[in-house]
Simulated scan of single mutants.
Amino acid sequence: MRVVFDFGGVLFRWHPPSFLARVWPQRCPDEAAGAVAAREFFTQYAGDWGAFDQGLIGPEEVIHRIAARTGWPEADVRAVVDAVPSELQAVAGTVALIEAAQAAGHRTHYLSNMPGIYADHLERQYPLDRWFESGIFSSRVKHSKPGAEIFSLMEAQLAVPPEDIVFLDDHPDNIEAAAARGWQAILFTTPEAASATLRERGLIR
């Protein structure tokens, strides 16, 4: 079996409301305000941030576009873009889940919507080559989830029947797209819940 992990919100901490409350305390005094700002800043990972995810624009352009769209000062927008690597901390429970999948004889991979500068950072800071046999970053293939193209690229890389792919992601749209292709798609909420689901399916001990 091939077990495929998303990164932000699954293997790495990614919670925009609390992130923006930390980075922008003057603008987001609490998580509720952070959630409102996050919807405007990241636009549900479409628009300008979606283009950043897909590697179609770089950090300077996304900063300029977000500032122009929202009216926020470019310096404020840059502070958020620059702070993302500090938000992307490995989640210990998910690392343990990867190790459990490997111990059970499964091969592990990743499929992540990730701008290039952050993908580079994660490769420098974490042992991705130990955790995963292979993977795809959206910025390096110019496609992103939930688009069909990136799932097709993953299938070509894995070269197994769709039903032999177990996929963990925290976004319902991505899960629906994977399930429609015949993948065993599991909506990730916490490492503990994901572990329980994999145990119920007999995939890990």
Rank of each mutant, 00 (worst) to 15 (best):
V4N: 08
P172D: 03
A179C: 05
A79W: 07
Y110K: 00
G147L: 01
L158M: 02
V81L: 14
L20D: 04
S86T: 13
V4I: 13
E176P: 02
R39C: 09
L11F: 04
D6G: 12
A177K: 08
Q26A: 13
P85T: 09
G116V: 11
V3K: 04
L203R: 01
F7I: 07
I165E: 06
F132Y: 05
A185V: 13
T189E: 10
V141K: 12
E163K: 06
W72S: 12
Q26K: 09
A35Q: 12
N113A: 08
S112F: 14
V80I: 09
A46T: 15
A51K: 13
A68V: 15
A103L: 07
L20Y: 06
G116W: 02
R181H: 01
L128R: 11
R2M: 15
E133T: 00
A38I: 08
R69H: 06
V166Q: 03
L153F: 01
F151W: 01
I63L: 12
F137Y: 10
E192S: 10
P115H: 01
G135H: 02
T43D: 13
V23P: 15
I136W: 03
D164R: 14
P16E: 00
P172K: 00
A51F: 07
V36Q: 10
D48I: 14
T189K: 12
A180T: 12
R201C: 13
A180D: 12
V62F: 10
D6P: 10
R27V: 15
